[in-house]
Design a protein around this nucleic acid. Structure first.
Length: 277
DNA sequence: TAGAGCCTGCGG
DNA sequence: CCGCAGGCTCTA
């Protein structure tokens, strides 16, 4: 479910609330998450029990909680994951897999019906070189993401089309299915174009489009198409701003041609067949 | 670099 | 019943 803007929204909401909080208890459902791997209770407890939350960060689609123990919790929400900040007395939602009980009567709860998410912990010094974070490409909202970097990565790609390139986290960290379609529409690039055939001029447009689409989605607090909600249950507003995603058959906002859907890597892509080349 | 697989829920 | 869903990883 969540891509960069949704994870960034969650990080910002949590940042207003979690730093300074002490984790008093840890509860785990014991159900396996990503790759049918069970959450490692000892790892989580060693990192979190009795620790104070010092900072909340995001890297790509990952959330990071830096703790006073010197460890960090690493969280990925997969397709259906949510974090919920709720009173400890409030009933737990179905599919709750982790509860961090905070001093003062509130919980941070990890809820994930499909269990494609990930929850683990690393010593702070080992986090950046962890298997999860090691290979991530540049975060598109940082200064590391430049037109030249994007162009070089496109040129380095053999075979893959530009849409598949955009959702490859090793190339750009944080773009998923919604924002790939939206960025390609803004940049007027056809999703089936081979990545290495994207010209420098198009790469510059794509760079600006990726930034624009992600930044405005963050401003709009993310996209709620089905069930994305933030830590307080708030929905996003960005679904109203989507130009092509989930709009098959509707008129293109630029040229009025009908928006089409195609399938790439078993995922839907939406685009305008007239504007995008 | 395709395709399958991991899961549950929803809408047609 | 079927297909499909904001992700990622392992396989051939």
């Amino acid at each position: 479910m969540p891509e960069l803007p949704e994870v960034e929204t969650i990080a910002r909401d949590l940042r207003g609330r979690l730093p300074g909080c002490v984790i008093e208890r840890v509860w785990l459902s014991g159900k396996p998450l990503r790759l049918a791997r069970p959450v490692d209770r000892r790892r989580i407890e060693r990192a979190a029990l009795g620790a104070r939350i010092e900072a909340v960060r995001r890297r790509g689609k990952y959330l990071i909680l830096d703790l006073s123990s010197g460890h960090a919790l690493l969280i990925h929400l997969g397709m259906s994951g949510r974090l919920a900040l709720e009173r400890s007395a409030a009933p737990r939602q179905p599919h709750t897999h982790c509860v961090l009980a905070l001093a003062g009567g509130h919980d941070l709860r990890f809820v994930d019906p499909r269990r494609f998410g990930l929850l683990t912990a690393y010593p702070g010094a080992a986090l950046a070189s962890s298997p999860e974070l090691r290979a991530l490409g540049p975060d598109p909202l940082t200064s590391e993401f430049t037109p030249a970097v994007l162009l070089a990565a496109l040129r380095d790609t053999r075979g893959a089309d530009v849409k598949t390139f955009l959702v490859d986290q090793r190339r750009v960290a944080g773009v998923g299915n919604i924002y790939a379609s939206e960025a390609l529409f803004l940049a007027r690039i056809h999703p089936r174009r081979p990545a290495h055939s994207v010209s420098a001029a198009r790469a510059t447009r794509l760079h600006a489009a990726v930034r624009e689409v992600l930044e405005s989605a963050v401003q709009n607090r993310g996209t709620t198409l089905r069930d994305y909600v933030g830590p307080y249950g708030w929905e996003g507003e960005n679904q109203e701003k989507l130009r092509v995603y989930m709009r098959e058959g509707e008129p293109c906002p630029r040229c009025r041609a009908r928006v089409r859907r195609l399938t790439q890597q078993a995922r839907s892509t939406f685009y305008c067949p007239r504007c995008q080349r």
